[in-house]
Simulated assay, not measured.
Amino acid sequence: MRINFILNNRSTSVECDPMIRLLDILREVFKLTGVKEGCGEGECGACSVIINGNIVNSCLVPAGTLEGAEITTIEGYRETKRYLILKEAFEEAGAVQCGFCIPGMIMAAEALLSKNKNPTERDIREGISGNLCRCTGYSMIVEAIGIAAKKGDGLW
C-alpha cells in the first residue's frame, strides 16, 4: 500500500504494509533515529512524535492510518526557533543526563506549549505524563519546560 503524508514539512510517501508501525518506518525507511523504541507498548514516550498537532507514541500507530497526516519528529522540530529555546532551557535546568528520553520529552513539551503558552507546574506534569525518565527524575524537566515557556513568550 502506498501512503502519502507530510514528514518534517516535506511531502513524502512510502510503500509498506498498512500494519507496520510508524516507529519502524521512521527509523528503518527514513533513518530518523531520534525516535527511540523503549517499551514498544506506548508506555514510555521514547517514540513520541507530533501528528496533526497532537503528541502520539509512534510505536502504536499503524502506517495505514497516516494518509494525509502531518508528522513532526525531533529531527524536523530541531530546525525551529522553538526547539532552540527548549534545548537551552533543558541545558539551563540540568534536565539532560543520558538523553534517551529527551527527544520524546522535547516533543511532549512542544505539544503542550503549542496549546498552553503559560502552563502551571501541574499542566507541565500532565503534559509529559506519558514520557518516562529514568535518570534526571522529573523536577528538572518540569523546571526546563517552565523556563522555556517564559523565554519563548510569543513563539508558541
Rank of each mutant, 00 (worst) to 15 (best):
P18Y: 06
P18N: 05
M19I: 10
R21V: 06
L23R: 14
D24P: 11
E28P: 11
F30D: 00
F30K: 08
F30L: 02
K31L: 13
K36W: 07
G38Y: 07
G40D: 07
E41M: 13
G42Y: 06
E43C: 13
C44L: 04
C44N: 05
G45Y: 05
C47F: 02
S48H: 13
S48A: 13
S48T: 14
G53A: 04
N54F: 13
N54V: 11
I55C: 10
V56K: 15
N57R: 13
S58Q: 03
S58N: 03
L60R: 09
P62M: 00
A63V: 04
L66R: 01
L66P: 06
L66C: 01
E67D: 06
G68Y: 04
A69R: 00
A69D: 01
E70V: 13
I71M: 01
I71E: 00
I71S: 05
T72I: 15
T73D: 01
T73L: 02
E75T: 05
K81E: 12
K81S: 09
Y83H: 12
L84E: 15
I85W: 09
L86P: 13
L86M: 08
A89Q: 12
E91P: 07
E91H: 12
G94T: 04
G94H: 07
G94K: 07
A95G: 09
A95C: 03
A95K: 10
V96H: 08
Q97S: 10
Q97N: 08
Q97V: 07
Q97A: 12
C98R: 09
C98G: 04
C98Y: 07
G99W: 09
G99Y: 08
F100G: 00
F100A: 01
F100R: 12
F100T: 10
I102C: 04
P103H: 05
P103N: 00
G104R: 10
M105H: 12
M105D: 01
I106A: 04
M107D: 02
A108I: 05
E110T: 14
A111W: 13
A111G: 13
L113E: 09
L113I: 06
N116H: 13
K117M: 10
K117W: 11
N118T: 12
P119L: 03
